[in-house]
């Protein structure tokens, strides 16, 4: 795939923005529209953009982590967020919250951790599917 200089420069600045935006979407999900799913998708689109600008091999290097690892990590985090309450004698997937509010993040609790899992899985699968298809086309 050809890469254009203008595009790759633009993307360089766009990607951090997109990533931050995705994180923001994810964080506000508990109270406003958003959440792990949409957040993950936006993050994935950042990597897709990078790939369009710089090629898929570069994009893979840029990601640093193999998408399947991301998926596995996401699933693991989601599962662990469910298992943790069990150590406190609660049922599987029961939400546990810290009493005090954190800056920016607001309330912190296991459902939020669960949502991080969702975020990672969505990011992982989107990039995995896009990269696989793109490689196929080469």
């Amino acid at each position: 795939m050809k890469t254009s200089v203008i595009l790759s420069t633009a993307v360089k600045y766009l990607i951090p923005l997109l990533l931050i935006f995705s994180f923001f979407l994810f964080l506000r999900g508990h109270n406003e529209p958003g959440g792990g799913f949409v957040g993950g998708l936006v993050a994935a689109s950042a990597f897709a953009l990078f790939a369009i600008a710089n090629g898929f091999d570069e994009a893979k290097k840029f990601m640093k982590i193999e998408p399947i690892m991301l998926i596995a990590l996401g699933l693991l985090i989601a599962l662990l967020s469910g298992l943790v309450p069990m150590f406190f004698g609660l049922d599987f997937l029961t939400g546990i919250w810290f009493e005090k509010n954190f800056p920016i993040i607001g309330k912190l609790g296991t459902p939020l951790v669960f949502d991080i899992g969702v975020y990672l899985v969505v990011l992982g699968i989107s990039t995995k599917i896009i990269f696989s298809l793109a490689e196929e086309e080469k």
């Binding site: 998408p67 998926i71 699933l75 969702v118 992982g124 699968i125 696989s132």
Partner: peptide
């Protein structure tokens, strides 16, 4: 949702 993301994960593996 746990089931849902599992479906996604498997689908990605499947595509790959």
């Amino acid at each position: 949702t746990m089931g849902e993301i599992t479906v996604l994960a498997v689908a990605a593996i499947g595509v790959f």
